[in-house]
Amino acid sequence: MIEAAALTKLYGKARVVDEASLTLASPGVTAIIGPNGAGKSTLLSMIARLLPIDGGRALIDGLDVTRTRGDELAKRISILKQENGLMARLTARDLIGFGRFPHSKGRLTPTDYEKIEEALTFLDLLPFADRFLDEMSGGQRQRAFVAMVLAQDTRAILLDEPLNNLDMRHAVAMMRLMRRAADELGKIVVVVLHDINFACAYADRIIAMQGGRIVVDGPVEEVVSEETIEAVFGLPVMVRDVEGQRTCLFRA
């Protein structure tokens, strides 16, 4: 369960995130959309205790993120940011093994090895399991980091633009995976997405942000309308249902 109440982040006088409130209690996929600089990543980072909070508070399973021990929170929430692994000459298997750190503290048990194999299989990484990350393609590397997050096995999973570096096939596979994580494993998945159509196709709920504020929050059909998207992105768009799939196109 994720609860954010009037979360605020200031950079100087700029309110990068401005009193954002949201509650995510049940399993599902929630997409956060919005133009660049809307505060999407900053909001996720505050919820996941990566950035200090300047106002309001964030609770994970009722625990205040600023006051709870890091290793306790690490069993409940995980986050994957866009830039990862400055010194990452690790094999995919090693990296995913580090995802088990909150549970094993480095002493991997048979359960941990199982979870690692599961994550490798889930993300189609078995052929590259023993390859170094810096010798992989951008897509494989990205999947390895997502596999690490899955191996961490927390109920709440936050992903900041996980589709970066992925071609269409792998992007679709990644979103299906998010869907399965929510439906089969009961995860609360929150993803920042740039492509509204991926949000339409795979999310249960969409949160749109603009200028640091949450402007709309609701099911796909409610959020993705021409008026709302035009207001959020400041761009004329067409919204159509194509074979039952809500679709948003920019007007050339």
């Binding site: 021990r69 692994g85 990452a88 750190f101 961490q152």
Partner: peptide, 20 residues
């Protein structure tokens, strides 16, 4: 060593995995 390796991966990953 595990913790130092994670520190090498950056602050974000370390914090997410519960490292001080």
């Amino acid at each position: 060593a595990d913790r130092f390796t994670l520190a090498g991966l950056g602050r974000d990953i370390s914090v997410t995995l519960g490292i001080a």
